[in-house]
Simulated assay, not measured.
Amino acid sequence: MVFGKSGKSPLFIATKEIGIASSSVFYNHQNSGRLVFNQQDLLDKSWHPPPPDSIKFNVDASLLCSYKGGVGSVCRDHRGRLLLAFERSCVHWDIAHLELLAIKTINEVLKDWMLEYNGIIIEGDSIKIIKLIHEKIKDGMEGMEDLSFTKNFNNVICNWVNRDSNKLADLCANYAILSSFNWEDVTLNKIPPNFLDLLKDESISCML
Rank of each mutant, 00 (worst) to 15 (best):
G140C: 15
K104N: 11
D164Q: 04
L43P: 05
D44N: 11
I177N: 10
N28F: 07
R81P: 00
N28V: 03
S165P: 09
L83E: 04
E99Q: 11
S126C: 11
G140M: 15
D60G: 05
L198R: 15
L178I: 15
K104A: 14
S24G: 06
G69D: 08
N107L: 02
M144Y: 13
N31Q: 08
D53M: 01
I13A: 14
H134T: 02
P50E: 00
N28T: 04
D139R: 15
A169K: 08
K128G: 06
R34I: 03
A61M: 12
G72K: 14
W47V: 07
L100N: 10
L35V: 10
L42E: 10
M144C: 10
N58A: 01
K131A: 12
F12N: 03
M1F: 09
Q39C: 08
V71P: 06
K128T: 12
L83V: 02
N182Y: 03
P192K: 12
Y175K: 09
S180Q: 09
D77K: 02
L43R: 08
S46G: 02
S6R: 08
S46A: 05
C206A: 05
Y67G: 03
G143C: 12
E142P: 08
Q30V: 14
L208S: 06
D125S: 11
K16M: 10
E17G: 05
L35G: 00
K167N: 07
I95Q: 12
I191L: 05
S66M: 07
R81M: 00
M207C: 14
W113T: 00
D44K: 09
R88K: 13
P49V: 09
G7H: 07
G7N: 14
K56M: 05
L196H: 03
L64G: 04
H48C: 10
V156P: 02
L198C: 12
L199N: 13
D41W: 07
L115Q: 07
G119Y: 01
V186I: 10
K136S: 15
L199Y: 06
G69P: 15
K16E: 11
W183K: 06
A14F: 13
